[in-house]
Amino acid sequence: MIDGLDSVMLYVDNQEQSIAFWTKDLGFVIKSEDIIYDDYKSVEVAPSLDSETSITIFDKEFIREASPEVNLETPSLMFRVQDLDALYADLSNKGIRCGDIVKTPDGRVFNFSDDEDNYFAVKEAG
């Protein structure tokens, strides 16, 4: 039986740029960095070191070589935050493309994109 979700794998064209986006722009921390082989590595990032779920960033080229059957599309991720307005202002001030804040039946939500035009969403914790 499955106990939970450990990590979401994110496949990117520019791994270093993606790591910088998640750590510098969004304030995530690097939980681990492992050399897979040659120059390929996996880098696990999360909101904090004790976060239950993390994002593991892989170079798409590595995945194409090692596992050509894997779908390289970006997963649809929904994050949660206590102060949606503060995060929205922070990301906007950093020049990160953000969609409008929208009110849904589950609360307020907005989306944002990384440097590769992958979109993610964040909702206000209720």
Rank of each mutant, 00 (worst) to 15 (best):
D3N: 12
I35E: 15
N118V: 00
D39C: 04
D39T: 05
R97Y: 13
D6M: 09
D34P: 03
S54F: 09
F79E: 04
C98H: 08
E116R: 05
L72H: 14
I30G: 03
Y119E: 14
V45F: 02
Y11A: 08
I63F: 07
D39N: 12
P75W: 04
I96P: 13
T23P: 01
E61H: 14
E61S: 12
K94D: 14
S42C: 14
I101T: 07
G95K: 10
E52R: 13
A20D: 13
D3R: 10
V8I: 11
Q17E: 15
V81D: 04
P105C: 10
K123L: 07
T23G: 02
D6S: 11
F62H: 13
D38I: 00
S67K: 15
D106A: 14
D85G: 09
P47V: 07
E69K: 09
D117I: 02
V45C: 00
D85M: 09
K60E: 10
V102C: 03
T74I: 02
G95M: 11
L84Y: 09
R108K: 15
Y40I: 07
G126P: 15
E73I: 01
I55W: 01
T23F: 05
D38R: 09
M9Y: 13
L10N: 00
S54G: 01
G126Q: 09
E44S: 13
Q82V: 08
I36E: 15
L72Q: 14
N71P: 09
F120I: 00
E33R: 12
A121K: 03
V81A: 08
S113E: 13
Q82N: 11
S18R: 00
L77D: 00
K94M: 11
D38H: 08
